[in-house]
């Protein structure tokens, strides 16, 4: 690692101020950032740890929805959302491993927007709202391609608001080495329609499978997906699977998610 300082502000305001410094970078749980720092892929002057900011931690429910602080760990989401939003809790409880879940945060995952991460699929399928220190961003506007989001420099995710669907499920087919999603599909059924978000597959990062959404909004059953397929164009090919295989998996996993929801 290059040399840098670590600061631990206790409030969002202090964190925002600290991030105003030249070459300052936010540090969530660090589970992705720290390995990349070890490879010397980033050269921050100061890392602003968000882990000591109590105001962005925890889960609360209001008006049929959940508000999850941006600094809430995967382990906390897995535990505290188990009753209110079991599909989300199960997803969080399967990210990485227990040690990663004890550090990694929802805000950190969404800010990073790894194309194979789980949270982007959950947020997009849930129609979440990403709350920052300056504004609220609809998930549909937030994800802008692999490792790219609507966040501005120095903007911090303070919370994520998620409407709770009537039914939902997330199925992850793991890449065997990293255990990220080779393909992950999150299906959420709301009274006014179904949302299907796919991670791990596209070169553009997480996306909604709108044909499946239309079919499922009329008939929420695996059978409704018969005959539908995703084009392999624009899907990733790597050591672990071709674009065609990923396209195939999207169909299989979507059906399984619907069946499980």
């Amino acid at each position: 690692m290059y040399s840098f300082d670590v600061v631990r502000p206790k409030s969002v305001a202090d964190a925002v101020a600290a991030l105003g410094e030249e070459e300052a970078q936010a540090l969530g749980g660090g589970q992705t950032l720290i390995p990349s720092l070890k490879q010397r892929l980033a050269m921050p002057s100061v890392l602003v740890s968000l882990a000591a900011i109590d105001e962005i931690k925890g889960v609360s429910s209001e008006g049929g929805g959940l508000t999850i602080g941006g600094g809430t760990t995967h382990a906390t989401v897995a535990k505290d959302c188990a009753a209110s939003y079991p599909a989300l809790a199960a997803m969080a409880g399967n990210i990485g491993d227990p040690a990663v879940r004890n550090r990694g945060t929802i805000g950190g995952s969404l800010a990073n927007n790894d194309p194979a991460a789980c949270y982007p699929a959950a947020a997009l399928a849930s129609g979440a709202t990403i709350v920052t220190n300056t504004r609220e961003i609809a998930a549909d506007d937030y994800f802008q391609g692999m490792f790219t989001t609507a966040l501005e420099e120095g903007e911090i995710i303070t919370a994520v608001k998620l409407p709770i669907p009537e039914k939902a499920a997330y199925i992850k087919f793991e890449q065997p080495a990293s255990r990220f999603a080779l393909v992950g599909v999150f299906v959420a059924k709301f009274t006014d329609g179904v949302r299907v978000a796919v991670t791990g597959a596209s070169e553009e990062g997480v996306f909604r499978w709108t044909e499946a959404e239309a079919a499922l909004s009329g008939d929420f059953s695996a059978a409704a997906l018969e005959g539908l397929s995703v084009s392999a164009d624009g899907l990733m090919t790597d050591l672990h699977g071709s674009a065609a295989y990923r396209a195939h998996l999207i169909g299989v996993l979507t059906k399984r998610a619907v069946a499980q929801a």
């Binding site: 670590v6 660090g30 720290i34 890392l47 740890s49 227990p98 040690a99 004890n102 550090r103």
Partner: peptide, 13 residues
Amino acid sequence: GETVKGCTIFAAE
């Protein structure tokens, strides 16, 4: 009281 990876957390944290 929680398990974390010692290689993925700074002493300062």
